[in-house]
Design a protein around this nucleic acid. Sequence first.
DNA 1: CCTACCGATCGGTAGG
DNA 2: CCTACCGATCGGTAGG
Lengths: 201, 201
Amino acid sequence: MRPQQPEIMTPRKEEIYQVAARLFQEKGYRATSVRDLARALGLKPSSLYSHIGGKEEILRKICFDNAERFLEGIGRVEAMQQASAAEQVRALIRLHIEVALHDITSLTVFNDEWRHISEPWLSAFKAMRRDYERRFRQIIERGIEAGEFKPLNPHTILYTILNAVRWLHYSHPAKRDITPQQLERDLLTLLMDGLLKEPQQ
Amino acid sequence: MRPQQPEIMTPRKEEIYQVAARLFQEKGYRATSVRDLARALGLKPSSLYSHIGGKEEILRKICFDNAERFLEGIGRVEAMQQASAAEQVRALIRLHIEVALHDITSLTVFNDEWRHISEPWLSAFKAMRRDYERRFRQIIERGIEAGEFKPLNPHTILYTILNAVRWLHYSHPAKRDITPQQLERDLLTLLMDGLLKEPQQ
DNA sequence: CCTACCGATCGGTAGG
DNA sequence: CCTACCGATCGGTAGG
């Protein structure tokens, strides 16, 4: 279901994907035309099609690449066998900050434009998202059962954390005068102290 | 700059706006055609134009109505002269939950589709948003200065809260088995305990 | 990577 | 609220 990709991209193709991501982020996928993309690259619209299969192929790659990044990340977190649930949630929050700082443009498109993927890929994408959220929620539920976390509704906890970090990019313009380290420390304080029964001092 | 509106809407016009909001939410503004809207209403596309001025007029009304709802809300919060900063932030979180539960469709369009507003309205809309965020941030800063809140970066605090509650609608499907009261209590616990220096027991 | 071009769809108007 | 229609733009293809 996932479009098989050769993983080898020519520099030109890399550039096309990067410029497209920026345009999708700025104007939205539907409002970005193939002509907009061609113009931004200094090409005629038809010339794009020797590099790409179509407009949607770009969107799919961006969305699936990010989905895989998060799924790999949560796999590593789950593999932390000795870790408490609190340490695992902390690692997941760090994962989201990391991905956001790594390529905020691509992450924004992933977050905001995925619904324009057509079937059958859309269903595959949604399944990956559901899988990620289910696994995140399981970690939260284990933390509650272990008495580490407050006995709040696991869905509410999950989506509060996810929304706070998922749309980190909306606060990006305001992040000029803050280091990634400060951002991480403050975010972890806010979210973990709210979650933990006995916040550490 | 704000499009003056007669505030009196015929039932038919109300219906058009409501159906449009639902389509904008489901497919996005750009992906919703005037023909889609007409079909959903059982009309010919051209017939819409005796009720509305154009497609974008609907989007503008939805966005400005919600912006005004939030600005009125923060005005009431600022008027709570005796209140601590903590009580004011709590009231603002409640305001977001209230708006989300009141009309989640309209709020979703406001949050996700505003960028498709054209100038000069777009600038007016952005100014309203900036104003809201500035006033919210001032309350946070007063809480820090008063020693109520942890001395974290005010921007990080603001956007963590805002992102957590602003995209409340993404967790809406999961809210089936939780009452608004439980949702409010859990959200306030998570966010306020993270923020307060000395969380109340 | 180009010229030339396709059918489909877009938001919207004229006139009744 | 309709029929009839507009110019503009859409994603994409043929053929070189």
